[in-house]
Amino acid sequence: MMNNLFSIFDPSTNIFNLSLNWMSTFISMLLIPYSFWFIPNRHFMMWNFISNKLHNEFKTLLGINSFKGSTFIFISLFFFILFNNFLGLFPYIFTSTSHLNFSLYLSLTLWISFMIYGWINNTQHMFIHMIPQGTPTILMPFMVLIETISNIIRPGTLAVRLTANMIAGHLLLTLLSSNGVTMSNYLIMILIFSQILLLTLESAVAIIQAYVISILTTLYSSEVN
């Protein structure tokens, strides 16, 4: 039963023996609004509104020492994760964010970039960050060890957080829908209503997880400046 349940996440879609599962990651590019219209449509206006709100919030988190345009990295990360989460809610579309290798590669690449930049350009600041202010001398070695471990596991926690939240909702939807064959008509109506509520919840989770990952990545980036 467990093998059949988790098989919904297996990459198995192919056309003419060509694996097209990870193409869903690039399909999200079609959701980006085009900017060559003389009169922007509602999609483009909503895109600009969300981008401006995120830019102001990320700018505040990064501080005054951040580089100009650095917020666009995290805005792009937000939209990239958001579109991939939403595409996974449609039937027969491969959910790339529900795989640990995808989310781990994404978070690990950003974390390594931050660490390389921080240790090369702000070495003294990185050493100071390992020991909180006011720490007793006898506890300094332990604090360095704890801060080092917490820093190393950051990309793993980001990846597991995104993957676990996306898997949990999909599994719950699959478990409920698999029991619909043996139910009566009244129970099927209740099942359909509960599935709609869960799908609405999953849509909210897709937005929240994209926002949380982008905010945490921004906070990790602000610590190396």
Score class of each variant (00 low, 15 high):
L104R: 03
L54D: 02
N52R: 14
I32M: 07
M23F: 14
L31Y: 15
N121V: 13
S76G: 09
I50G: 05
D10M: 09
L54Y: 00
L139T: 01
I207E: 02
S70L: 05
I153R: 06
P141G: 05
S96A: 15
N121F: 12
T137Q: 11
L173R: 07
P33L: 03
I131V: 15
L198K: 00
K59G: 12
T157A: 08
N52H: 11
F114E: 03
Y117H: 12
S150K: 07
S203E: 01
I215S: 04
G169S: 09
L61W: 00
F67I: 07
N3P: 04
I196W: 01
L87E: 00
I188C: 13
N14A: 09
M143S: 08
N17P: 09
I152C: 06
M189I: 13
V224T: 14
M29D: 08
T97R: 04
V144E: 01
N52K: 10
S24R: 03
I27K: 11
L173H: 08
M126Y: 02
P141W: 04
I152H: 05
L201Q: 08
I93K: 13
I112L: 09
L87H: 00
T200C: 10
L61H: 04
T123H: 13
S24T: 15
G134D: 02
T97F: 08
N4W: 05
I167D: 06
L187A: 09
Q124H: 13
L20G: 08
L176S: 04
S19T: 02
T13L: 13
I153L: 11
K68C: 11
L171W: 02
P155L: 00
W47E: 05
L187C: 07
F58V: 04
L89Q: 06
S221Y: 06
I75Q: 00
N122D: 03
H125C: 08
L110V: 11
L139W: 00
Y105L: 10
M46N: 15
N165Q: 06
A168D: 10
N65R: 07
S66E: 13
F94P: 14
S107K: 01
L18H: 09
V160Y: 03
I75R: 04
I50S: 04
I32C: 05
N21E: 05
S35R: 15
F114S: 00
T200I: 13
I73S: 03
P33C: 03
N179V: 14
L158C: 00
I208G: 04
N17S: 12
V205W: 02
S178R: 07
I128F: 11
I167E: 07
I39K: 09
I138H: 07
S12K: 15
M2G: 15
P136C: 02
S51T: 08
Y105F: 13
F193E: 09
K68A: 15
W119N: 12
I128H: 12
S178K: 11
L139N: 02
T97E: 00
S70P: 03
L216R: 06
I208S: 13
L20H: 00
L198Q: 04
S98V: 02
T148P: 06
T71D: 06
T25K: 01
M189R: 07
L87Q: 01
I188K: 15
V144I: 15
M45C: 12
A168V: 12
F193W: 11
L173D: 05
